[in-house]
């Protein structure tokens, strides 16, 4: 695991990314959060007679995926935010950071490994969540569905909404607790997620600071009465998610006491 002193820069970063993924996927808490989000999703959007009567567009796979992207993925990402927040401090406490620092590893390689590891982990969890729930929907739907009608919006959701949202949560959750008190980070995160949860969809352009229910979601499914896409709002949403992630990474990289002096 810690043979990082030979090989290219990419390989050194790759070792830390692999370490991050292995540590995170082995945590029972991650699967508790995943299970809670799946439960909430199935309660809300399982294609039962009651839910089909309540939600007019539920028979459309694209609506189903955009609905769970807006609401239930938010719960999943909120839980993952907590579990990613300790990735830098846990290395210090367990002595793993000393092992990494004993190797000819640069600060940027260590930070990049942590950030990319956080991003990959978030993205893989998000994809697993979407694919699992779509599989349940496909199997349980009391009407006929073609596989392509399910797979196309699913792939679109993973790439168009999942990538920027995972980048935001992965980078921000790993980097910001390294530069501020973790409790303050939780409060800032809670305010942002709380605003997301309390936001009600409308025909107007959605606020740019929404993580999973911004105008990016309109690229997956649009209400038949409001079929337009506000591209300025979509771009603002993308820039907010990716720009905040980049700013968090820069803040971590310029932190002086993250690594030994002179690297």
């Amino acid at each position: 695991m810690f043979i990082v002193w030979e090989g290219s820069i990419m390989r050194k970063t790759g070792v830390i990314v692999r370490y991050e993924l292995k540590m995170q996927f082995g945590r029972p808490a991650v699967w508790v959060v995943f299970g809670a989000a799946v439960l909430l999703c199935q309660l809300d959007s399982f294609p039962s007679a009651v839910n089909l009567a309540r939600l007019e567009f539920l028979p459309q796979p694209a609506y189903f995926i955009s609905r769970i992207m807006s609401f239930d993925v938010l719960v999943l990402l909120f839980g993952l935010m907590f579990l990613l927040a300790g990735r830098l401090s846990v290395d210090e406490r367990t002595g793993v950071k000393s092992l990494f620092m004993a190797a000819p590893l640069k600060k940027s390689q260590y930070a990049a490994g942590k950030l990319v590891g956080g991003f990959f982990f978030t993205f893989l969890m998000l994809c697993a969540f979407l694919w699992f729930n779509m599989a349940v929907y496909f199997a349980a739907a009391p009407f006929s569905l073609s596989v392509s009608a399910c797979v196309f919006p699913l792939v679109k959701a993973c790439l168009v909404c999942g990538l920027p949202a995972s980048l935001f949560v992965g980078f921000v959750s790993v980097a910001l607790p390294g530069v501020m008190d973790v409790r303050l980070f939780y409060m800032l995160g809670a305010v942002l997620f709380g605003v997301n949860a309390a936001n009600v969809g409308s025909a107007e352009a959605m606020p740019f600071y929404l993580i999973t229910s911004g105008d990016l979601v309109r690229l997956i499914w649009r209400h038949p009465r409001w079929p337009f896409v506000n591209w300025n709002s979509v771009l603002a949403n993308v820039f907010f998610l990716t720009g905040t992630a980049a700013a968090a990474a820069v803040l971590l990289l310029i932190k002086r006491d993250l690594w030994r002096k002179g690297s």
Partner: peptide, 13 residues
């Protein structure tokens, strides 16, 4: 962080 995560999930739900 599990304690904060669980109460946070209840809060967000």
């Amino acid at each position: 962080h599990l304690a904060a995560a669980v109460s946070g999930l209840v809060w967000l739900a």
